[in-house]
Every structure is written in structure tokens, then in C-alpha cells.
């Protein structure tokens, strides 16, 4: 079981908040020692998910924490909102679902960018997406 420390929370209520979230995640990923490509993956995933929280979830927050288990360290990001929720998560995760509507959720692609991806969504109650990126051992 992974433990976490240095928890921090950021609001996601507008497109400026999305930019701030990207900055904060990049700074933390750099501090933890992620290489440039890994940083770009996690910051891009942050951008996708933070925008969903803001636009589709009606606003919410991002919780950042450093996680560690026996072998490694990583970065955990949780995007949570109390919005309308996603009626069919499986469909939302399938590729192409987002591109059809143009500016969709992009969940399928985002999932490929990170090591762990968990989504819970209850219609009428909200959506919670948790992602973890582990620092590769060298």
C-alpha cells in the first residue's frame, strides 16, 4: 500500500486555474526528478483532467501528493468535482468517443499517459479521477 505526504489542494474553477494547475504539477514533477518526457505526459494529463473538472464538472479541485511504496516514489493527482457525473464511464473511456464531439473528455488518451488511472463517477453526484505517475528506477 502506498503512503502519501505533502498534500496540497488547488481550485479548478476557471481556465486560469487550469494553467496554474499545469504550472504546479510541472514544478512538483521536476522537483521529484521526472525526466522531460515524463513531465510532459503528466502535465498534459493534468491539463486534460483539470479542464474536464472545470468545464464538465462545473468546477472542483485538484489534490496533489507525493506517494511512495517500498520500492519507488511517485506523484498522485486527484481531480474531483460535484458536477453532473458521467452516465457511461466505459464509453467515455473508449477512444474516439471524445474526438467525435470535437472538444470532448479525452479520457481514453489521457489514461495512456499515466501509470495508474482510476475513475469513479456517479450521475448527479460528481466525478473523481485519480492518476499516479511513478518515478522510473534507474
Amino acid at each position: 500500500m502506498a503512503t502519501s505526504d505533502s498534500v496540497e489542494t488547488l481550485p479548478l474553477n476557471g481556465s486560469d486555474d487550469v494553467v496554474r494547475a499545469r504550472h504546479r504539477v510541472r514544478a512538483l514533477a521536476t522537483e521529484l526528478g521526472f525526466d522531460l518526457v515524463a513531465q510532459t505526459r503528466i502535465v498534459t494529463a493534468t491539463s486534460e483532467l483539470a479542464r474536464n473538472t472545470h468545464l464538465h464538472g462545473g468546477g472542483g479541485e485538484l489534490t496533489l501528493s507525493e506517494v511512495r511504496d517500498n520500492r519507488r516514489r511517485g506523484l498522485r493527482l486527484v481531480f474531483a468535482d460535484d458536477g453532473p457525473g458521467i452516465p457511461d464511464v466505459q464509453t467515455a473511456l473508449s477512444d474516439g468517443w471524445s474526438s467525435r464531439g470535437g472538444l470532448g473528455l479525452g479520457l481514453g488518451g489521457t489514461r495512456r499517459l499515466v501509470d495508474e488511472f482510476t475513475i469513479e463517477s456517479v450521475p448527479g453526484e460528481g466525478t473523481r479521477v485519480e492518476i499516479v505517475q511513478w518515478l522510473k528506477q534507474r
Binding site: 522531460l36 518526457v37 488518451g109
Partner: peptide, 14 residues
């Protein structure tokens, strides 16, 4: 386009 951005775009399917 930066190399890291190109890699990420392809992984996203874009």
C-alpha cells in the same frame, strides 16, 4: 513542436 510534445501527442492519439 518539441520532441516531448510530439511523443505525448501521439500517445494521446492526436
Amino acid at each position: 513542436i518539441r520532441p516531448a510534445v510530439a511523443i505525448t501527442l501521439v500517445e494521446l492519439g492526436l
